[in-house]
Design a protein around this nucleic acid. Structure first.
Lengths: 244, 244
DNA sequence: CTTTAAAAATGGAATATTTAATATTAAATT
DNA sequence: AATTTAATATTAAATATTCCATTTTTAAAG
């Protein structure tokens, strides 16, 4: 990672030392603070708040005013769309070194999702108004921010499209592959999410999720225990994902 | 509309005369070309291509390279997500004075949707590379473009979320209300879309859509004929939309 | 080591939605 | 007006998914 060398942060002030924001690279986009001048960077870093959450706590609540970007230093959180009748849909999982913008930042200043801690979380809150200050004067920064927004939206958009187009087996396959490829990067992997949460990621009830998991197990495609999954036939799982 | 007076277009060159782009206001965001200098504006206006499509023609195809923004001067088009097994989902309807960005403009340069003409269409194609030229030097323009992206993404995002969270009656109600409020702005309204297309907007088969329409008719909530719909009890329809 | 509570797993009934087959209507053509 | 075609409408059966009740397992607490 050359992020820490290419960014003009110092080691002397608190803001820069708590440097989760500076190590973040989101969805392939480069760190959005790269394009800031040292003065601008310090202005943001010294203004941010460092906050810890316990597993289970709500970090931001859907439909509340959006005033801060969230940068996760450690831990894992879920991005949830709360439906009208208490039905929750997990649209994304965010981890350390991830800046989350919350949805309608530049449009309606409102959180379109609830973000909740899955594990204990260390994160910092960065004022959006502070960030926007530099948009007008620093176009490199504006472009980077635009890319961050765009990549987050596209990622969630693809998730939603898959949920709509596919039947249950395809959606379960997607969830299992997402955890393996994007979250844990190992196989087998141990997960900290409940089966209810895996079901919420797959857009179905926990009973349906468990049944599909059992079917995969019976077909020899996976092994699974309470909190671990081993993908045995990845090609088959990919095929199920493709066929919906 | 004061858009035409506040923008530095001239009446002498072809580009400016074909001024669909200059009259566009997208999702409440102001016209993105407002912030351009006269020189920048002419550079874009003289470079764009004016193209006509017949009803039914494909304007842009999903997964092809994204090289142009599309600005619609007249007519109506559907924004379609093509599913793996030929299942189409209409995510948005775009009309005259609308600039459509196609999805992953600044990230992967790829069309995430197919756009197809519902009626005959007059539109212009604006090179994205040309547009991006001014991002680095004109931050007001960059901010406006960011707002345009953001508003389009949020709009489609909300559509997808509703499709996922609601049962069929709620989805049909949403489609009927969307057409009344956002597309035709009258009640009753005559529509040019086929029942298949209305079903594709509602995320269900045409048979299911028609059955739900009939149920609404039987309950006295609407009247409908082949190509017109009259919403009789809007409160009831809103209630159905809310309850999913 | 037992008790308790929460999460996970199971199975069947109820509901939602699609599929397929057919009938009807409206528009277009001869 | 008769013929053809495509869109629309209808119905019953098949499938997908949820809901509800129950059992089993696991983790936590006494």
């Amino acid at each position: 990672m050359h992020a820490s060398t290419s960014i003009n942060n110092c080691d002397s002030c608190d803001g820069c030392k708590y440097n989760c924001c500076l190590n973040s690279s989101n969805c392939g986009a480069s760190n959005i603070f790269n394009g800031l001048t040292p003065t601008e960077l310090h202005s943001i870093m010294n203004n941010k708040r460092q906050i810890k959450f316990r597993a289970g706590e709500t970090i931001t609540k859907q439909n509340t005013p959006l005033t801060h970007l969230i940068c996760i230093k450690s831990g894992m959180a879920k991005v949830v769309s709360e439906g009208p009748k208490g039905k929750n849909l997990i649209i994304d999982i965010i981890k350390d070194n991830n800046i989350f913008t919350g949805g309608g930042t530049v449009i309606d200043d409102s959180h379109h999702f609830t973000v909740a801690a899955i594990t204990d979380i260390e994160c910092c809150f960065i004022e959006t108004s502070k960030v926007f200050t530099f948009l007008g004067t620093n176009s490199a920064f504006a472009i980077d921010l635009m890319k961050l927004y765009n990549s987050q939206h596209i990622k969630m958009h693809n998730t939603l499209i898959n949920l709509i187009h596919k039947y249950m087996p395809g959606r379960v396959a997607d969830t299992l592959l997402f955890l393996k490829n994007d979250i844990y990067a190992t196989n087998p992997y141990q997960f900290v999410l409940s089966k209810q949460e895996l079901a919420d990621m797959s857009g179905m009830t926990k009973e349906s999720f468990i049944r599909n998991l059992k079917d995969f197990e019976d077909s020899g495609i996976i092994n699974h225990s309470r909190n671990s999954i081993h993908i045995l036939k990845e090609e088959d799982l990919l095929e199920i994902s493709r066929n919906g």
